[in-house]
Design a protein around this nucleic acid. Structure first.
Lengths: 214, 214
DNA sequence: CATAAAAGTCAACACTTGTACACAAAAAGC
DNA sequence: GCTTTTTGTGTACAAGTGTTGACTTTTATG
């Protein structure tokens, strides 16, 4: 239980990584209603309790801060997926459990997911691009995973990507709704139920599928 | 070829509705990479070629401008849906045609769709809320339409909403991709094909469905 | 045509913004 | 322990911001 060493000024204890503090401040401010390019450099440093010029010691630019937030947020998301892949055992309640885990996780890391959701179409081109790339990557990873299921073994890569895209879009929809309703609890239950149904419906279509490419 | 009547100052000819010009300027600026709350009042009036104070003659607030843009954008979208409902005849190529029309339409009104996509999760709470409400409305309308199809006649409202939600999320995904790639043409063809497949897959699941409520 | 209302202009305000530069403290390297 | 880097501070400036109030022009209305 290492107590943080004394400080002669509040919040100086984590001065080790002001960089981290800047990132967190940005997320925090976005949580209080702002899109990323609505933020100002000074606003952020003010939140951290540091002088504006300090910002430049860590980031050349607001954009570079933003890109780091993208990376950070996807790291969060990937941690979830890693665990999910290890624990997920195909079976009756697999979908249900996955969705539950997902919703809980989104709640636990709301600021990261909010950032991604908000900047996916947001006002900064570089950030948008980066997110897009990562999502596409995610989609093809999911496609690979799906390809391991017996029913999907014979499917073309294209079609697998098509399904995973559909699923990811459904999940993004879920994220939206989680973010929109701040209370957890009953809202979540209904939400989870719907998401589960949606995924189940998609899966029901799979055995019927026959790709009739153009 | 009616040439616009003479003006003693550029763009004075449409001074009849500066209000419209302000709205358009906002959309235009957002098209050059900005999210709505990254815009400034002065920026907008400058774009129109009018003095900042003029803004207040038309809008009390930036927020009220934003809300009007939401309304305008949804009007655009609803026009499409209206036509779609009238012309759509169930059949072999119905899905394909609908998707084609949709993509073309999104291209033709990119700034409106961009606005909606960007501000759906964007930084202004009031705007977000308004969009959310409208999307939900759209979803339940689509649910009603779906309910008219024979296969879906027996479905509960809840389940119909679930399906329409899935479809709408898929289409939102399409919008993203259309916005991301500025060139039309071949990109669109592939995009249309994928969207078509996704919708078809959803529909294939439908006859297999049996709702097993919690 | 006169008059009232609506739409646009001008000048000014008190703030906030990004960034530059010179300096002080802290950490790291030797 | 001294020196060098790194990190944070203070001051300053030019430019942009939202909003005000008092004016002028345009448009509509009687």
């Amino acid at each position: 239980m290492g107590r943080p060493q004394k400080t002669h000024r509040a919040s100086k204890d984590r001065s080790l990584n002001t960089r981290q503090a800047l990132r967190e401040a940005a997320l925090e401010l976005m949580d209080r209603d702002n899109s990323f390019d609505g933020l100002s450099l000074r606003e952020i440093t003010r939140e951290v309790g540091v002088v504006p010029t300090t910002f430049y010691r860590h980031f050349s630019d607001m954009e570079s801060l933003g890109l780091e937030l993208v990376a950070e947020s996807f790291r969060t998301l990937r941690e979830l997926l890693k665990v999910a892949r290890q624990t997920a055992v195909p079976g009756e309640k697999m979908i249900r459990r996955s969705v539950e885990t997902f919703v809980t996780y989104v709640r636990a890391h709301r600021r990261h997911f909010q950032f991604l959701a908000r900047e996916r179409f947001g006002g900064v081109a570089a950030i948008r691009e980066e997110i897009r790339t990562e999502v596409r990557l995610l989609q093809s990873e999911l496609a690979t995973d799906l390809g391991r299921f017996p029913v999907l073994k014979t499917w073309s890569t294209e079609d697998l990507n098509m399904v995973s895209g559909l699923m990811i879009n459904a999940m993004i929809g879920i994220v939206e709704q989680v973010l929109a309703s701040r209370r957890r609890g009953q809202d979540d239950d209904e939400l989870i139920m719907i998401a589960e149904k949606q995924l189940r419906l998609i899966i029901l279509g799979v055995p019927q599928w026959r790709s009739q490419g153009d």
